[in-house]
């Protein structure tokens, strides 16, 4: 697969000296869903704004579909749809007029049939003649998405799309994202909700303090960095962990009814077989066993802590 968005050594220093991006390199592959994870103020929005042309990078280069976003801005921006984080909408306009305006701005000929179809997919069609200020917050966010999709973009940026959004809209939104992906649209979403990234992304990038800490295939990332835990439930509680088992650095569960063994799935030996042997040698009887993989959240917190 080829990159549709390529960010090379991008730096952004704001007036006043705040360095929001410190040399970001990022290749986004065509057709993938990339989740950019990072705490507030990590530089997620600045990165997106610079790719979309809202702010100018201080140094470095960006291409979208092979077009430089500064010298080839027309071709580059034509490919991009942006759903901003803030609900920025013209309050007195109707939904349909607002969406039509967006399509026109991108130089696309009027096509109301297509726009109505977009509104239908977003459950907005019955509100198409309503003034935007009369809509609820969730509906307004749908309008933002409709505006971004109005000109049939090949790359869609969703900046914190589910911040303050109810469950129903979140589900609708993921349906739309899945349909777009099926059409080959590349989707980049920023979030600080780990579950979101875990649920829908193909790859996950972690950004903190203006630097990309890693970008990796979601499954690989979790396998590589994920620690697994083996939970062993005992038939009879123990008062203390037998000294013969000290090398396993076990943790004791509540009431001494269970033991927890942490191991690295990437390690050559997980040590499970010998642990089980040693457990029976120590005279412990097992009632049940369970393994748990650490979530993306644990990985994320671990990474961000390291750089803090």
């Amino acid at each position: 697969m080829s990159s549709i968005v390529s960010v090379q050594n991008l730096r952004k220093t704001f007036e006043g000296g705040f360095e929001a991006l410190k040399g970001v390199n990022l290749e986004i592959e065509e057709g993938e869903i990339l989740a950019l994870l990072g705490p507030n103020g990590a530089g997620k929005t600045t990165l997106i704004s610079t790719i979309c042309g809202i702010t100018l990078g201080t140094s470095g280069s960006i291409t979208v579909g092979g077009h430089d976003v500064v010298t080839g801005y027309r071709a580059a921006r034509s490919l991009i749809g942006l759903v901003p984080q803030e609900i920025n909408l013209e309050p007195f306009e109707t939904v349909m007029n607002s969406v039509r305006f967006s399509r026109g701005l991108f130089g696309k000929p009027r096509n109301d049939a297509y726009l109505e179809d977009v509104l239908k997919k977003l459950s907005l069609h019955d509100k198409k003649d309503a003034r935007i200020r009369t809509l609820s917050g969730g509906m307004k966010r749908r309008v933002l998405i409709a505006k971004a999709l109005s000109h049939e973009p090949r790359v869609l940026f969703l900046d914190e799309p589910t911040a303050g959004v109810d469950v129903e809209l979140r589900k609708d939104m993921w349906d739309v994202v899945a349909a777009l992906k099926a059409d080959g649209v590349t989707i980049i979403l920023t979030t600080h909700y780990i579950e979101e990234a875990e649920a829908i992304a193909d790859r996950v990038g972690v950004i903190n303090k203006g630097e990309i800490l890693l970008v990796q295939d979601k499954a690989a990332l979790m396998a590589q960095l994920g620690k697994k835990e083996l939970h062993v439930e005992l038939t009879a509680p123990v008062d203390a962990i037998p000294t013969s088992l000290s090398k396993y650095e076990l943790a004791m569960g509540p009431g001494g009814r269970s033991l927890v063994y942490s191991y690295d799935t990437k390690g050559e030996r997980t040590g499970i077989t010998t642990l089980l042997n040693d457990l029976s040698k120590a005279g412990l009887k097992l009632a049940d066993m369970e393994t748990r993989q650490s979530s993306l959240e644990d990985i994320f917190v671990g990474l961000v802590k390291e750089t803090a």
């Binding site: 979309c52 042309g53 809202i54 801005y73 027309r74 071709a75 580059a76 921006r77 034509s78 991009i80 942006l82 901003p84 803030e86 920025n88 909408l89 013209e90 309050p91 967006s102 701005l105 991108f106 130089g107 505006k147």
Partner: peptide, 17 residues
Amino acid sequence: FPKFIGTIYELLSAPIN
């Protein structure tokens, strides 16, 4: 007005000069 309500983002990210 677009600057005030924030819709200026659309003008800036559109393929227009």
